[in-house]
């Protein structure tokens, strides 16, 4: 028989948690346990599985190879190839030197180029003042090179060198080659005093072709040597001023055309002229003659 009433709803389950679920719930609410389960165990499992996977050397090798292969593939793409090197406004000899120093085998991937190192290597060349290296679109390696301009020749103890206006070495004149037409400096430690030498040379411009060169004495002062004529010994302090005094004397009295071996200006308050032996004996004779004349008169 069917019951007439609606079926009774099932009795409500006991709302009380069992002892086990109560304890587990309390355990779950413990901060340490909670953080351990939520962070500690997953982190440990991840670290452990990763460590286990990587502990096989073949896997590591495969991963490394795959990575390198991928890098290679990307580096060899057409977009990253550098095919030409340009150096706008650089002389031929220097550009050859630069190409030797750089030593690149085009085409090169731009991934393999270390531009800073390249610039440093180029700057180690004597003739280069500074270099900037950049890769331009279209696979062009562009070097902006500033050359040193040769200013003087320096006859050192070993070789004939070319220096720029600041005393940096630009190059060397090979033995037997014709040196370039530059003023000549001689002596030790000239490279440290090139600006002073240049000032002297500028002041000595009126001498023209008679100017032989400058000699550095004792790494502290200059002697100016003329091709025909006396040697000018200049002081350590204000050599340009003393040179101008001598040149003024030359202009007024043709000092340098006389029979003099040296003009010693080392002490500006007491310039000394050294006569040649003939001039000296001649002067002596003249003085004797003048004495005799006076004696005869007296």
């Amino acid at each position: 028989m069917q019951p007439l009433r609606r079926p009774q709803p099932a009795a409500r389950p006991d709302p009380a948690p069992s002892r086990l679920s109560y304890k587990l719930h309390r355990l779950w609410l413990t901060p340490l346990i909670r953080s351990l389960i939520r962070v500690g165990i997953p982190a440990f499992a991840l670290a452990f599985s990763l460590g286990y996977y990587l502990s096989n050397p073949r896997t590591t090798e495969t991963i490394v190879l795959t990575f390198l292969d991928l890098r290679q593939q990307i580096a060899e793409r057409e977009e990253f190839q550098v095919r030409v090197m340009v150096m706008p406004g650089v002389s031929d000899e220097l550009s050859q030197d630069v190409q030797e120093v750089v030593g690149l085998d085009f085409p090169v991937s731009s991934f393999d180029l270390d531009l800073d190192q390249l610039a440093d290597r180029v700057e180690e060349l004597d003739a280069v003042a500074s270099a900037r290296v950049a890769i331009r679109p279209g696979g062009v390696l562009e070097m902006q090179i500033e050359e040193r301009t040769p200013a003087v020749l320096w006859q050192g103890r070993e070789a004939l060198e070319i220096l720029d206006a600041e005393g940096h070495r630009v190059g060397e004149v090979p033995a037997g080659a014709t040196p370039p037409d530059l003023p000549l400096l001689v002596g030790d430690g000239v490279d440290a005093a090139v600006p002073e030498a240049l000032a002297l040379l500028e002041a000595a411009a009126p001498l023209g072709a008679r100017l032989g060169g400058l000699v550095r004495i004792g790494e502290r002062r200059w002697d100016l040597v003329l091709r025909e004529g006396p040697r000018l010994k200049l002081p350590e302090a204000n050599p340009v001023g003393e040179l101008q005094r001598v040149l003024a004397a030359q202009g007024a009295e043709d000092l340098l055309d006389r029979d003099i071996v040296a003009v010693d200006m080392r002490n500006p308050r007491r310039p000394v002229l050294r006569l040649s032996p003939e001039a000296k004996s001649r002067l002596l004779e003249m003085r004797l003659a003048a004495q005799e004349q006076r004696g005869a008169d007296g």
Partner: peptide
């Protein structure tokens, strides 16, 4: 237990 568990929750 019932009261405590829900309060803790």
């Amino acid at each position: 237990r019932t009261a405590l568990q829900s309060a803790q929750k």
